[in-house]
Computed example of a mutant assay.
Amino acid sequence: MRVTLERKNDNYLLEAKGASGIPVMIDNKSSETVQGSSPMELILMGVGGCSAIDIIHILKKQRQTISSYKVEVEGERFELDDSKPFKAMKVVVYLEGEITPEKAQRAADLSFQKYCSVSKTFDRVVAITYTISLNGKEL
């Protein structure tokens, strides 16, 4: 796997591309006019996106009908020398549709404990917790 990043202005704005060629804009959140996501936001998006793909795939294979899928990922950081890495992430998955609660929970468990390469990358250094809200009720 390989990505490229190219500077697009005189400050911090970068255009990143992976194999698809679809650009993702990255910027420093302290810029006057922010034109992209920060690298730390992209990490949270990666955890949310990876688990979403897994969970949706698993539920579709189980013939569950998803009418809405939303995920929120919140990262907690700490001071380490001159950096602020994540020490914890909290993921909340909001599912709506004709989905059995046990299948929703099992799909999330499989994603976070077995399949999601992004969250597994951080397994030993970042505490990642997750909850499922199915049709407005927390499981």
Results as ranks from 00 to 15, higher is better:
Ile26Phe: 02
Ile43Ser: 00
Asn28Ser: 15
Asp123Glu: 15
Ile99Val: 11
Phe86Thr: 08
Lys87Tyr: 12
Ala19Glu: 14
Leu110Gly: 02
Asp27Tyr: 03
Asn11Gly: 08
Asp10Pro: 07
Lys8Ile: 05
Val3Tyr: 10
Lys103Arg: 13
Tyr94Ala: 02
Gly21Asp: 06
Ser67Phe: 13
Gly48Ala: 05
Pro85Lys: 12
Thr121Ile: 03
Asn9Lys: 11
Glu138Asn: 03
Tyr130Ser: 12
Ile56Ser: 07
Thr100Ile: 12
Ile43Tyr: 02
Leu80His: 15
Lys137Pro: 03
Gly18Met: 04
Gly49Gln: 01
Gly136Leu: 07
Phe78Leu: 10
Lys60Tyr: 04
Leu134Pro: 13
Ser68Asp: 13
Leu95Asn: 01
Ser133Lys: 15
Ser51Gly: 03
Ala16Lys: 07
Tyr130Ala: 08
Phe86Asn: 09
Leu42Thr: 02
Val93Trp: 06
Val71Leu: 01
Met89Trp: 08
Thr100Pro: 07
Glu138Ser: 04
Lys60Ser: 10
Met89Asn: 08
Thr65Met: 06
Tyr12Glu: 00
Glu6Ser: 11
Asn11Ile: 05
Ile55Arg: 03
Asp82Tyr: 05
Leu110Pro: 06
Ser20Met: 14
Phe86Cys: 08
Ser111Tyr: 04
Thr4Glu: 13
Thr121Asp: 00
Val126Arg: 08
Gln62Cys: 04
Lys70Trp: 07
Met1Lys: 08
Asp27Ile: 02
Ala16Phe: 11
Lys70Gln: 15
Asp123Cys: 09
Glu74Val: 11
Val24Met: 12
Glu6Thr: 12
Leu5Asn: 06
Val3Lys: 06
Thr100Lys: 15
Ala104Met: 01
Phe112Lys: 07
Ala88Pro: 01
Ala108Gly: 10
Ile132Ser: 08
Met1Phe: 09
Ile128Ala: 08
Lys90Thr: 11
Ile55Leu: 06
Glu102Asp: 09
Gly48Tyr: 04
Ile26Met: 12
Val71Lys: 01
Ser83Lys: 13
Tyr12Val: 01
Pro23Asp: 02
Glu138Gln: 10
Arg77Glu: 06
Leu80Asp: 15
Glu6Pro: 01
Gly18Pro: 05
Lys120Ile: 07
Tyr12Arg: 07
Val71Asp: 01
Lys84Ile: 08
Thr129Ala: 09
Glu96Trp: 00
Cys50Thr: 01
Thr131Tyr: 02
Thr100Asn: 15
Arg63Lys: 15
Glu15Ser: 13
Gly18Gln: 04
Arg124Asp: 14
Glu138Cys: 00
Gly46Ser: 08
Pro85Thr: 09
Thr33Pro: 00
Asn135Arg: 12
Met40Ala: 05
Leu95Arg: 00
Ser20Gln: 14
Ser111Gln: 02
Pro23Val: 03
Val118Gln: 03
Leu13His: 11
Lys90Gly: 06
Tyr130Trp: 14
Ser38Ala: 10
Ile22Tyr: 11
Met40Phe: 00
Leu13Ser: 07
Leu139Lys: 12
Leu95Tyr: 00
Pro85Gly: 07
Ala107Thr: 03
Phe122Ile: 05
Ser68Val: 00
Leu14Arg: 09
Lys103Ser: 05
Tyr115Asn: 03
Arg106Pro: 02
Ile43Val: 14
Lys29Val: 09
Ser31Gln: 11
Asp10Val: 09
Glu32Met: 10
Lys114Arg: 15
Thr129Glu: 14
Lys87Glu: 12
Ser67His: 14
